[in-house]
Design a protein around this nucleic acid. Sequence first.
RNA 1: GCGGGAGUGGUGAAAUGGCAGACACGCAGGUCUUAGAAGCCUGUGCCGUAAGGCGUAGGGGUUCAAGUCCCCUCUCCCGCACCA
Length: 871
Amino acid sequence: MQEIEKNDAQGLVGQAQEPQRYNPAEIEPRWQAVWDADATLYAAEPVSGPEKSSKPKFYCLEMLPYPSGQLHMGHVRNYAIGDALARFMRMRGFNVLHPMGWDAFGLPAENAALKNATPPRAWTLKNIEQMKVQMRRIGLSYDWAGTEIATCLPEYYRWNQWFFLKMVEAGLAYRRSSKVNWCPKCATVLANEQVVGGCCWRHEDTLVEQRELEQWFLRITKYADELLDGLDTMPGWPEKVRTMQRNWIGRSEGAHVEFRVSGMSNTAAITVFTTRVDTIFGATSIQLAPEHPLVKEWVKSDAGLATAVAEMIAQQKVARETGDIGNIEKHGVATGKTAVNPFNGETLPIWVANYILADYGTGAIMSVPAHDARDFEFAQKYGLPIQRVIGSLTSLTTDLPFEDEESVALVDSGEWTGRTPVEAQEAMARFAEEHGFGKKTTTYRLKDWGVSRQRYWGTPIPMVYCTNGHADLKAGGVVALPESALPVLLPEQIEITQEGGSPLGRVAEFVNTTCPVCGGPARRETDTMDTFVDSSWYFYRYTDARNSGAPFDSEKANYWFPIDQYIGGVEHAILHLIYSRFWTKVMRDLGLIRNGEPAERLFTQGMVIKDGAKMSKSKGNVVSPDLMIEKYGADATRMYALFAAPPDRDLEWQEEGVAGISRFLARVYRLTVKYAPMVRAMESRVRGDETAPEQFAGQTADGAALLRTLHQTIAKITADFDGRWHFNTCIAAIMILVNEISAAEPAMDAGRVSRATVAELLRSLTLMLTPFAPFLAAELWQQMGETSVVFQQAWPVADAELARESEIEVPVQVNGKLVTVLRLAAGVEEAEVRAASLADEKVAARLEGKTVVKHIVIAKPSGTLVNVVVR
RNA sequence: GCGGGAGUGGUGAAAUGGCAGACACGCAGGUCUUAGAAGCCUGUGCCGUAAGGCGUAGGGGUUCAAGUCCCCUCUCCCGCACCA
């Protein structure tokens, strides 16, 4: 049993001079130097062999940045969240993989080259160095030596080429000519996912043009169903992201039906896609998209139609430019042709309409005005007939258009009359198939991923065009290089100009090569890969980043995957996050990995805003992380990013708030430094054993109260890390603890708190600060006489016994309104609570002349409450 | 139009159906100082001198009890948007 040593504390403290002021500008660089000197400080433990880690694994990942050269606050927030988690999980005894790298290919490097004549490679590598300095200053616990990758280096991008060849072999990469999105500013093609509202994702005010080009595509549509269905089994992903992906994939079940065109050869037919084949008896016209192949045919011999269609296309272009596409008025033109409804032999006029999308379904529809709002609007405008074929079971009086499929039945629909729509859809599709004019079909909004880019700074596509005509049919008629020819290196000496065409096409030494099959002269593919290829699998490379014989070792990947926690911005919901799911499935089917999804849990943090708007150069509201660190320190900056809002919400950056955190850290510093000599002077045996309950037997009231708050704080923070991630309230809890310790200073100085208690308070406080303010934690740990590494210590364990309150507060309500708060001993009987609540003066006054109808006593772990209901 | 999120003090925010506004910023007063800065102490939802009353976008409901659950309406943000 430890006796309380009076005056000890006082004596030691009395000798201390004016404590040093908290000076992050001195502390942080000093610790950074110590940490930087140890390349394995944050390395994960081995995953195989005799040294294999016995700990459970935890893969903590933040999205890798593009090396623009400048870290912004969004990065700081993202990485502060991930770093707090990684540090916490290490202290909780997990084998943590916490990697970082650079998404280093892409257009900005070429633009910079144009602007100031720096080669893209040099420019990129310089930016990486710059940003790495910034990230090190923040104290992020990445395993740089073991994991760092830069996607622009051949050690990395050769595996992009390797995967590409594997996909060619598997029929997943192919070349074809098609209409593609062209950004005039980027001077390259974009994938559908990179077109946002008709504009380029990098140039939000630049309209994307349509061009017909030969392109390489990856067959992501092969996985459309799996990508969609998998979303249902991913509870660790935000519903928002899953919904966005569902919409993007856009699976739609329906049927194709062929309508023969009258007066043309027997083979001429229009195939329409419909999800409501049950309404086909209500079809009163056929509508084609202006770009439909038949329309292109017909305009040749019909000048009037040609003019109308050309106008339509022009108008759509204008609407897209002004952003009005979507609420553009419906209009159309009759072609004069007709087609036959195969279900009832009716002859329907064929129109061209501006509301029919060329690239969805078949670009042709059957128009059923009675049961489709859009067709209804169109038919009314042009006086087309409206034929009702679905009725409610009781009457036909419902307004048109009537789109319900529930509790209704078909009318005037031949042999299907009386069937429900759902039954009829199935039966009619089967009928069409049996008679050879249709079938059940599923269409998707998702299209194959166009990966060719007419740019220099990207991964060369490892294909050649043989002049002798050697052609690999699997590769779309060109020749795939053998694996042994990899990597196909990007030439270093290159002149970047604004000329059209792929810059690589102007480098003769690159272009001219030999055919791997016949040895004859051949031309290399001069397009490079979309940079989203790089980021589709980078997190697998992290598990084995120095492997020169394979993209990674399967055993290592299988150990670490799936990622336990992935953290990043929601802006990648349908770009990176859908591509990387696809890539994972491809790698699984190649036998490289076992998992079918890359990440168990995904967290999308909110934006950092300033003055109510997203930080941007054009708004002039950008806050520089460097400036913040300079003024307040890295600890204060990253801690503020966690304190100002819960991590999933947008965060308003207020510099006064950072100053506030800095003041708080200064208080912690002063407090700890003041008592550090006392803690240091204690025998390490006692010091290191502070959680043993016997240390606190015979505890004073002051000490017990402090320990109670301490253990409540530990419990709260531990639970929050495991649960809801409200780091803002975690930090608030630490502040409450510090406020309380500060207020108890007189008691501590007077020796009314045992040394063991003071030591436990300050040691646990320091440990809890580690995930949020690692520099300060390291400093204070050392000041308390420790030589160990603070973030390698075990996370403190909450002791429920010490956390228990001796007294409870019991609010008493009368008719639901608070009247008083009683203070009662913890563990008091319900009957006593009941009696005490009625005995209270204020309560009694309210009961005067009334009858007590109910006397409710709620006793829950969260608290006790009384409500007296009177009449 | 569809889908998702949000609406609480001067501000950022907190509250497993159980004391609304924890924690912090800002502000005010005080203390220290030749002075200022920093620190420290006190106060700070609104109305009211007070007792007290009123308050979580607005309206209704369920409940002993609603910021929280249900219904309707409004506003803001994000995503999708003629997807047949």
